[in-house]
Amino acid sequence: MSPVISARGVHKHYGKKMALDNINVQIDAGKVVGLIGPNGAGKTSLLKGILGLAPVAGELTVLGMNPQRERVKLLEQVSFIADTATLPRWIKVRELIAYTEVVHPRFSRAQCMVFLANTDIQLNDKVQQLSKGMVTQLHLALIMAIDSKLLVLDEPTLGLDILYRKQFYERLLNDYYDAQKTIVITTHQVEEIEAILTDLIFINQGKLVLNSSMDEIANTYVELHVDAHYKEHALAHNPIHVRNLLGGFGMLYEGAHHQRDSLAALGRLATPSLSDLFVAKVKPQMFVQGGV
């Protein structure tokens, strides 16, 4: 089966700034991929290239199509939620649902109603009567009711409270996702998507910093929780990241399979959180050389 997204040597310049620098990525069907990076890392440039919103250099195909040349055909199979939901303020919710049903052949009114059932949104409400969070909820319900092969979520829960964010990701897996769909999520709330990801991509300054399955990450990286008395012994094993803990340190190691026994003798081993792994890979010198 062909990959859903295939990028080889993809690069993008804005004047002298290199937004994307030789990106090589393959994403297969049935994956839930977290695309994580700091502001200005190149995430938006990559997403725009994937969606055909802006040209990129190199080889890029999405669902076997060229996003620039075949954008109209591509968007029949792709749904996209941006970080800011923009809907006509004058329209009623029922009218918006009816309009979407007419213009998009893969839209399911029944599925949309399922997503709206756990909100306070009423069918006779006008968009202008809704809060910012409710507009986001409505936008999510409309997009997720479209049976797309690729769903791209760019900060999808921005502006939502923590309860709805949790419900959204649960519904994403239970009511939307299946083995034929692929989901790409960008967010700054990494801890909220950690449990649903199959794969993880870190990007920084236009470069790929990490591109791995979650299983590979669990096998490659380990964090040692060590008492302050064993700090120097733990540092001798060359951690890529060190953070302060109450009464000790958390030290993250890469490719430390052969060291696990000796590390375990110094303290407790754990799988690192995505947020700690992100800091370690994006700013690897920040703590190790910063004087812990």
Score class of each variant (00 low, 15 high):
Ser108Val: 09
Ser108Lys: 04
Arg109Asn: 06
Arg109Lys: 12
Ala110Thr: 14
Gln111Leu: 14
Gln111Val: 12
Cys112His: 01
Met113His: 14
Met113Thr: 10
Val114Asp: 10
Phe115Ala: 08
Phe115Ile: 08
Phe115Tyr: 15
Asn118Thr: 15
Asn118Leu: 08
Thr119Asn: 13
Thr119Met: 11
Thr119Gln: 12
Asp120Gly: 12
Ile121Lys: 04
Ile121Glu: 08
Ile121Tyr: 04
Gln122Thr: 13
Leu123Thr: 12
Leu123Glu: 13
Asp125Leu: 02
Lys126Gln: 15
Lys126Phe: 11
Lys126Arg: 15
Val127Met: 02
Gln128Tyr: 15
Gln128His: 15
Gln129Met: 12
Gln129Glu: 13
Ser131Lys: 09
Gly133Tyr: 04
Gly133Phe: 00
Val135Pro: 08
Val135Ile: 15
Val135Gly: 10
Thr136His: 00
Leu138Trp: 05
His139Gln: 13
Leu140Arg: 02
Leu140Asn: 05
Leu140Lys: 03
Ala141Ile: 06
Ala145Ser: 12
Asp147Ser: 12
Ser148Pro: 03
Ser148His: 04
Lys149Thr: 15
Val152Asn: 04
Leu153Cys: 09
Asp154Thr: 07
Glu155Ser: 07
Thr157Leu: 02
Thr157Tyr: 03
Leu160Ala: 01
Leu160Val: 03
Asp161Ser: 11
Ile162Met: 11
Leu163Gln: 14
Arg165Val: 00
Gln167Tyr: 11
Phe168Ala: 04
Phe168Met: 11
Glu170Thr: 15
Arg171Pro: 11
Leu173His: 11
Asn174Tyr: 09
Asn174Trp: 03
Asn174Ala: 15
Asp175Gly: 06
Tyr176Ile: 07
Tyr177Lys: 03
Tyr177Asn: 00
Tyr177Phe: 13
Tyr177Cys: 05
Asp178Ala: 05
Ala179Asp: 06
Ala179Glu: 10
Lys181Glu: 10
Ile183Cys: 08
Thr186Leu: 06
Thr187Ala: 00
His188Met: 08
Val190Gln: 04
Glu192Thr: 08
Ile193Leu: 04
Ala195His: 13
Ile196Gly: 08
Leu197Asp: 01
Leu197Met: 07
Leu197Arg: 01
Thr198His: 01
Thr198Asn: 01
Asp199Cys: 07
Asp199Pro: 03
Leu200Ile: 02
Leu200Ala: 05
Gln205Val: 10
Gly206Asp: 11
Lys207Ser: 14
Val209His: 10
Val209Lys: 14
Val209Tyr: 10
Ser212Trp: 11
Ser212His: 14
Ser213Tyr: 03
Glu216Cys: 01
Ala218Tyr: 08
Ala218Ser: 13
Thr220Cys: 08
Leu224Trp: 10
His225Ala: 15
